[in-house]
Design a protein around this nucleic acid. Structure first.
Length: 512
RNA sequence: GGCCCGUUCGUCUAGCGGCCUAGGACACCGCCCUCUCAAGGCGGAGGCACGGGUUCGAACCCCGUACGGGCUACCA
């Protein structure tokens, strides 16, 4: 039986008030809340993509919030890099640091008064209580509980302190934190996860966790709930590393008398070893892939497919298709292993779909950075470059592969690979073929691919050499390697003079 | 340890009780094309973790086991 809640996105009564009246919401609102303690990584990007696609699909709002409560490690450079990477991927947000909406500010560090306000509400309605236990005491209790087995959460020692006594201790300046008071009679906590279906926790398994630290700052668990509530989030789509945190957060929503949004927990991205993806698995930042020459459309497509499927056969699709077809019920709840080879293949697909002009534009920065071509020389060589484009695009997966492939076309003096020389220029007949080939090329009046090809095809028979030997000899002479772009086209692009020079000097290199 | 989640080809997945002798894609292997390498075409190998139920019938539902992951912070 199909789970009736799976993928549910009802506009009406979507909220999960345990016994409350269903509320009506007019618009889907979701958020992506990265912590600027590093660059945008693959996993975060995928979370952002799913939230963005979900919002677009349902005509809702995609909100970007910067969770920078970790003042130590958060930097503005990281925030900028994250925004840059998101824009590069084409993920546009409706509200965010640079696009204020009605529920800002969009930096958690600027929302402390809101957290304080909510904490006051909880203090007043008994949803929070002060705890004077010291960190050392807590650690000891935790260890003891763990040794005994079973529940290892806070033992609620301070919950029994008389309110009057507690406030005089606070007035006396005794250090304390504020904990949430989980109702003793709360019973089971159940969510209808839009991806995984029903998930239940027993009420006793949720401990009175800390809302505000000794220094008064809110913990993530508290701040995120206040924000999701005050920012009107209807759905929380995130990695399943947050699934276990959900019942705790629900306790805060309820204590605040705030509507509980619909949750959707997707499987994490893992490395080949089955552990969640991290730096030690190699490049994990979006911009690192961009710098290797991965196209944003390809990365978006690949990431979309890592944990979601459009149907049973479609692999390649554009952003419009994603935003019109994305569906939480088709998001996978199990972890996905990052497969760089499939990304490479997909990038190749996108590269091959580019027009020659587009490909030239994309390739140029790589040629320029290796000083293969100067910026001011480009306009005059545009036509030549567009001729080169299809030869290269068909063979590239990552743009980093291009320079080695085309270097022979730009080098003043060709470096002949020794292994290739030994292989192709030392065969019986290679020197003879080369000599004949030069004659043929030199005699050409019309220097284009068709003529070059028909001229060279005459060579093997004339010098009584197998075609393969003759062509490979010419290839190494002209390109410097046994593996190269197509020979006849390469010769045309090189130009008659250069091609002839190279062949001539290679004749002497050949061992006959 | 406790709690929660997960388990279909090596990898990403389709599958929602009969359409499944389990479909697609990447990777792999072979053949074709061919001036090399690619690209492309064709074909192949390869999987329901295990054990019990329920049912006329189970990859699909239930229970258990195993394995993997996550959470269990005055981190986010």
């Amino acid at each position: 039986m199909r789970d009736p809640f799976r993928g549910r996105i009802c506009a009406v009564s979507y909220l999960q008030k345990p016994e409350g009246v269903p509320r009506v919401t007019e618009q889907v609102r979701v958020r992506f809340a990265p912590s600027p303690t590093g660059h945008l990584h693959i996993g975060g990007a995928r979370t952002a993509i799913y939230n963005w696609a979900f919002a677009r699909r349902h005509g809702g709002a995609f909100v970007l919030r910067i969770d920078d409560t970790d003042q130590e490690r958060s930097t503005t450079e990281n925030t900028e890099a994250i925004l840059r990477a998101m824009r590069w991927l084409g993920l546009d947000w409706d509200e965010g640091p640079d696009r204020p909406g009605d529920v800002g500010p969009y930096y958690q560090s600027e929302r402390y008064d809101l957290y304080a306000e909510s904490l006051e509400v909880l203090k007043a309605n008994g949803g929070a209580y002060p705890c004077f236990c010291t960190p050392d005491e807590l650690t000891a209790k935790r260890e003891a509980a763990r040794v005994k087995g079973g529940f290892s959460g806070y033992d609620r020692t301070c919950r029994g302190i008389d309110p009057a006594a507690a406030s005089s201790r606070i007035d006396a300046g005794e250090p304390h934190v504020w904990r949430v008071a989980v109702p003793q009679d709360r019973g089971d906590i159940t969510i209808e996860d839009a991806i995984r279906g029903t998930v239940t926790w027993s009420g006793e398994s949720v401990d009175d966790f800390i809302l505000a630290r000794t220094d008064g700052t809110p913990t993530y668990m508290f701040a995120t709930v206040v924000d999701d509530w005050k920012m009107g989030m209807t759905h929380i789509i995130r990695g399943d590393d947050h699934l276990s945190n959900t019942p705790r957060q629900i306790m805060v929503f309820e204590a605040l008398d705030a509507p509980v949004p619909i949750f959707a927990h997707m499987g994490l991205i893992h490395g080949p070893d089955g552990k969640r993806l991290s730096k030690r698995h190699g490049a994990t930042s979006v911009e690192a892939y961009r710098d290797e020459g991965v196209l944003s459309a390809a990365l978006l497509n690949y990431l979309s497919l890592l944990g979601w499927s459009l149907d049973d056969t479609t692999n390649v699709f554009d952003a419009d298709t994603l935003t019109s077809r994305f569906d939480l019920s088709r998001v996978s709840s199990n972890p996905a292993v990052w497969d760089k080879e499939k990304l490479e293949w997909m990038n190749g697909v996108y590269i091959r779909e580019m027009s020659d002009g587009e490909f030239v534009d994309a390739m140029l920065p790589w040629l320029e950075s290796e000083s293969l071509i100067a910026a001011d020389a480009i306009p005059a060589r545009r036509e030549w470059l567009e001729k080169l484009a299809p030869l290269v695009s068909e063979r590239t997966k990552y743009f980093t592969e291009i320079v080695p492939m085309v270097r022979f076309l730009f080098a003043d003096d060709l470096q002949i690979d020794e292994t290739s020389r030994a292989k192709a220029l030392s065969k019986e007949g290679s020197g003879r073929s080369l000599a004949a080939a030069v004659e043929k090329i030199e005699a050409l009046d019309t220097f284009d691919v068709a003529h070059i090809e028909s001229a060279l095809r005459e060579v093997p028979a004339e010098v009584a050499v197998k075609p393969k030997i003759a062509f490979q000899a010419v290839r190494v002479a002209v390109t410097g390697n046994v593996v190269s772009l197509p020979l006849f086209e390469s010769i045309e692009l090189l130009g008659k003079d250069t091609a002839v020079d190279r062949m001539r000097s290679a004749v002497s290199l050949s061992e006959e």
